[in-house]
Amino acid sequence: MGTPDAYGVAMTAETATRTAPPPRAGARRRRRFSGGTALGLGSAVLYLSLIVLIPLALVVVRSADEGPGYFWRAVTTPDAWAALTLTIGASAVVALVNLVLGTLIAWVLVRDRFPGKAIVDTLIDLPFALPTIVAGLVLLALYGPESPLGLNLAYSRAGVGLALLFVTLPFVVRTVQPVLIELDRDMEQAAASLGASPFQTFRRIILPNLVPAMLSGTALAFTRAISEFGSTVLISGNLPFKTQVAAVNIFSQIEGDNTTGAAAISTVLLVVALVALLVLDLLQRWGSRRG
C-alpha cells in the first residue's frame, strides 16, 4: 500500500524544487541541508535504527552466525523446509485467487449499482481492521469442528488457505478500484460502436489498463500472506509437515530457544518479501510509464 507512494512522493518533491525558476526563491525553497534538516534527519534515522533497522540487521547477522553450512541445515530441516514450501505455495495460490476475485470485486464495486453497495465497499477493509487472532477465531467458528455448515477445514491446508484469503482480501480490490474509477470510458464506447463484443472490449481495452494495478495488488497480497501468523494459529492446529506455516515454525523455534534457526528461516522470509516488493516497484514504474 504505502510502498508505491514512497517513491512517487519523493520524486515529485524533487522535480518540484528543480523546476522552481527564480534563483533567490529557489535558494530559499531548497533549504539545502539546513540545521533543521540535519537535526530532523538525524533523529528520524536514529529512531528507525533503534526500532527497525538494527534489530532486523541482527536477525540476518544471527542467521549467519554459525556459517553457511548451519544456515542451510537450519532452513532444510524437514519441518522448516515443509513450513517454507507450504507458506510460499499457499501464498502463491492465495495471491492468484485474489488476482481473479479481487479484480472481480473491484469491477462490481465500480461498474455495478445495487442496494447496499456502500456497505459492501466498507466491508472490504474489515480484514485490515480486525485483529488477526480474531480473524482466525471467527473462521474456526464457522469452518471448524463445530461448523453449523457441516464444513470442517480445521487443521487442514484448506483452513490455512482460508485464513490467508481472509487477511489478504483488501489488497487487489483496493489497488484496482481507483484505476478502474479513473479509466476513460470513451475508448470502450468507441470499441463497442465499432462492433466489439463486451468480452473483446474487456480483453483488449480494459484489461491492459488494469494489469499493472492487478499485479501490484497481487504482489502485496503475496507479501502479506508469506508473513502471516495470527490468523493461522488457531485454524491450522500447527501440525508440522502438514499445516505449520513458516511464521509459526519460527515462533516455535524461538520458544524452544533456537534463535539461530529461527533467524535463518526469518531471513529467507525477509528475502522472499523483499524480492516480491522489488518486483512490485518495477511493475509500478512499468505502469506509470504506460499511463
Binding site: 534489530p55 507479501t223 508473513s227 495470527g230 519460527i250 524461538i254 526469518s266 522470509l269 518479501a273 516488493l277
Partner: peptide
C-alpha cells in the same frame, strides 16, 4: 509492512 510479526519479535 514486509516483515512478519514473528520476525519483528525475534529482531
Amino acid at each position: 509492512m514486509a516483515v512478519s510479526p514473528v520476525v519483528v519479535g525475534l529482531a
